[in-house]
Design a protein around this nucleic acid. Sequence first.
DNA 1: AGACGTATATTCGCCTACGAGTATTCGGAG
DNA 2: CTCCGAATACTCGTAGGCGAATATACGTCT
Lengths: 212, 212
Amino acid sequence: MAQRRKVGNILGLALLSLLVPGDALHPYEMARILRHTGKEQDMNIKVGSLYTVVQNLEKHGFIEAVTAERDGRRPERTPYKITPAGRAELTDWLGELVAVPQHEYPRFRAALSILGVLSPDDVVRLLERRLDALDAESAAQRRELDDAGDLPRVFLIEVEYTLAMREAEAAWVRGLLAAIADDSLSGVREWREFHDAGGRPPPEWKEMLDSE
Amino acid sequence: MAQRRKVGNILGLALLSLLVPGDALHPYEMARILRHTGKEQDMNIKVGSLYTVVQNLEKHGFIEAVTAERDGRRPERTPYKITPAGRAELTDWLGELVAVPQHEYPRFRAALSILGVLSPDDVVRLLERRLDALDAESAAQRRELDDAGDLPRVFLIEVEYTLAMREAEAAWVRGLLAAIADDSLSGVREWREFHDAGGRPPPEWKEMLDSE
DNA sequence: AGACGTATATTCGCCTACGAGTATTCGGAG
DNA sequence: CTCCGAATACTCGTAGGCGAATATACGTCT
């Protein structure tokens, strides 16, 4: 998964950001804060991975362990603090994420790309279910935004972003359904034939698909 | 990564779909077809993974090896064909992907959620760069769509979808920039203070962030 | 005919992700 | 006081992802 960055897991970015104020934190507390501040909505957080990521961050000098301490008689804890290299990595990484759109692979896009193996009628039914789910989620999220009305908007941009994207997707799906319904989507007849023929593309498409 | 599905890698879905017509294919040819038909745009395709996925698909009975053959003196090839269980898995999986929106974690959303560590001015600059990149990509993709004008639209839905999403994102970013510029985004002053204070949240926010 | 680049076809091994397990302490209920 | 569940704080093993290596055959330029 890791590529150019020495630490590829996005969790690493969140951890670095937690340490920015300068205080040392031990892994378990990082996990607690992340969960408590709702960061699980923004990224995949698994405790097992968190410890791996902390190790990697240390290995590459982005954080360093403060002398292990013992509080009460709890298991030994090793707190970490961010290094200058860590701060540099944080701003650089974050800057890149904001400025350069990544090519990610939403499962839905993958699914769309092989939609042909289903029949148009099935697809219509499935898309309608998706639409319902999308609308429900949007409504829930809009409520969430209203409830947190006193919190400055800046601290909710990721929610607004997600909401905007979800609504855009819903609109697109609606458009697609409409196009299928009023038959303005070119190729639906061919699609049905394709599907009825057991997924074997008619010969005259072969070249088109090949040449692409 | 794998969860409910016995084979979690989305590549498996694409491979199953290739085998739907009934002909047996060997792994290398699957890879060739996928690359040739532009599926790399829709999902992450690594040859190393492909072989692993093929093995897993076989292990779970979704595909089965046909007697290994030898063509010319090329290295031995083992072609696979889809089983009834494989067809069932394909339609079920695909159906779920279409009907049920997944919670995925776009890096950009994660980045937005910790934007606070950058200064508002930096963020504006970065967002402007993103906007340029988005517009450039959209333009390129629209050209691509025009060029393939004879191909039935059904076979380009994934492209249309991506384009729609990208444009929606661009619109949202534009809106955010405008809101920052005309100061209608609540909390920007606090944001600046927060950043100047070294990322330490002012005490009166603590509760809000905690209670969330 | 030899050399060299490209296409064919797969294997290997490292690293990361992460579920599940382990060990300890604390805060109540009874 | 003691039992027990929840919280604290990690560790470990396994499976999957993927870059890189390997090995053969083919085409073609000289």
